[in-house]
Design a protein around this nucleic acid. Structure first.
Lengths: 108, 108
DNA sequence: GACATCCATAACTATATGGTTATGAGAAAA
DNA sequence: TTTTCTCATAACCATATAGTTATGGATGTC
């Protein structure tokens, strides 16, 4: 399974409306387009377009049920972002390495 | 010192040319505008404009020396990004929670 | 002083982008 | 079947953005 490029992720998350949608899905769980539109401050077609972009970036999954579409966050998709920041930041890289070591030791 | 908002960071890093400049500064260290322009594939004014945006986002620092300007990466500026991805990702949150629990138990 | 070099800013252009309204496809309800 | 509801797409518009060339200020060199 191909990981989405950091480029796609950065571009998808650079827009505040899109980031807000993704945050809602991350924090509140699966939502229909209608529910997401309520409180988004933009029209339903705008929401749909944003969700399409998030989906193309691998950040959300959609599930069709009757006439509604449910969207949910694919949080694993953030992995390339975490990797990228880690590569750019030696300090954090060290912290993550420590964490991984500890988790490995916990498994044993 | 105010941390830059995730919005500024995402927007600054959403552009490939800008991200490439930041990556070079992270990986290869301090560079002059001339050095950065060589191999950037865009004109010197374009590079200067991008550096200005990175600077406003807190991602780079500039240092004037004679007629050249040296830019360097401010890697700490990525912290809000790391925080944000952490908040959006239950997996990592849970792992961190587990880690905290373990550390507490170890202390006792 | 005269000239060259480095960088930033100004002015402009083409395209990308985020929003809108209008519309239509498909599923549920009547 | 007819109507209603949910969502996606089409068509369009205004603005933002990333690039360009031109220029000028400041510093180093001759």
């Amino acid at each position: 399974m191909m990981q989405p490029s950091p480029d796609l992720l950065f571009k998808a998350l650079a827009d505040p409306s899109r980031r807000a949608l993704f945050e809602r899905l991350c924090l509140d769980g699966e939502q229909t387009v209608g529910a997401l539109t309520a409180g988004a401050g933009i029209s339903q077609p705008a929401v749909s377009k944003h969700l399409g972009i998030l989906k193309q970036a691998g950040l959300v999954l959609d599930r069709h049920e009757g006439r509604q579409t449910h969207y949910s966050a694919q949080q694993r998709a953030l992995a390339p972002l975490v990797d990228w920041t880690g590569r750019m930041n030696r300090f954090w890289e060290a912290r993550f390495d420590d964490l991984e070591d500890l988790l490995k030791r916990m498994d044993q």
